[in-house]
Amino acid sequence: MNVNELIEIIDGNLLNDSADLSREIKGGCGADLMSDVLASIQPEAVLLTGLCNPQVVRTSIMADVAAIVIVRGKTPPPETLALAEMEKIPLISSPLGMFALCGRLYAKGLESLERPVDGSDCDCGQ
């Protein structure tokens, strides 16, 4: 699915203009701890999170996230919006909660794009 289709499925509201909505989403990841996201997420996933601070966008850039969905209809602060706009990463707000978002997207066939964290593994998500 691409970002446009994602927005439709989750009743989302796109918060920035610069994003490329045709970008393909390869899987999902739901988490509020950014270190965990960095440790486990694979490239081109949609990140579902309850956090609104600019670190969500930073983390997403580092981890090559395809789109960010903020849960429960929260509105991120201006600095988060500005960063997403500058970095051209789709920032979407959805009225759904984390549980419903994971459920809906999983039911639509979007697989999990996190790997189990394993200390011996050091390829860092490639």
Binding site: G28, G30, S40, F99, C102, G103, Y106, A107, E114, P116
Partner: peptide, 27 residues
């Protein structure tokens, strides 16, 4: 579980578990 949150919730959703009220999602 060793599974990530996304996959666990996905499977619970498939089993029929939902949020408390569809109009007022709890999470």
């Amino acid at each position: 579980t060793s599974l990530p949150t996304y996959a666990v919730v996905g499977q619970l959703w498939e089993m029929g578990l939902r949020t408390s009220d569809p109009d007022q999602p709890c999470s």
